[in-house]
Amino acid sequence: MTPADLSRCVVSAVRRAVEDGELAGAVPARVVVERTRPGGVGEYATPVAFQIAKGAGVRPAEVAEVLARRLGRVAGIERVEVTGAGFLNFSLSALSAARLVRDVRRVTVIDVPEAPPSRELRERLVRAAVARIEAAQGVGPGPDSSVAPVARRDGDVLARYGADAVAWAALTTPARETPEFGDALLVQGEGNELFRVRYAHDRAHALVRNAEQLGFRPEAGDDVDAPALLRVLADHPLVLEAAAHHRAPERLARHLVELADALLDFQYRVLPRGDEKPSAAHRARLALAEAAGTVLAGGLALLGIDAPTRL
Rank of each mutant, 00 (worst) to 15 (best):
D103E: 15
T36P: 05
A287G: 09
A29Y: 10
R122M: 11
A184Q: 14
G39H: 09
A284Q: 07
N89I: 09
L288C: 06
R15V: 10
L300S: 00
K277Y: 08
P3A: 06
P38H: 13
G221D: 11
R15N: 11
S93C: 12
G304L: 05
R102A: 12
G215L: 09
L100W: 01
G39V: 00
S145P: 03
L125N: 04
G25W: 06
A85I: 13
D306H: 13
G57M: 08
P218R: 03
L230W: 04
L185D: 08
A94Q: 13
R16E: 14
A206K: 13
G55F: 05
R8A: 13
A242L: 05
K54N: 13
A56P: 02
P227L: 09
T46I: 10
V11A: 09
Y44Q: 01
V101G: 02
L23M: 07
G182L: 05
A206T: 10
I52G: 00
R16A: 14
L286E: 02
V208K: 06
D261L: 07
A148F: 11
L286S: 06
A29S: 10
G72R: 11
F216W: 10
L88V: 04
R283C: 09
I305R: 04
R16C: 06
T83Q: 13
V130K: 01
L233E: 00
E177S: 13
L207P: 04
R198C: 06
R273E: 15
A151W: 01
V257A: 08
I52L: 11
R198P: 02
G21E: 00
E65V: 11
R73H: 14
R285S: 05
A64F: 04
P143L: 15
R251D: 03
V224Q: 04
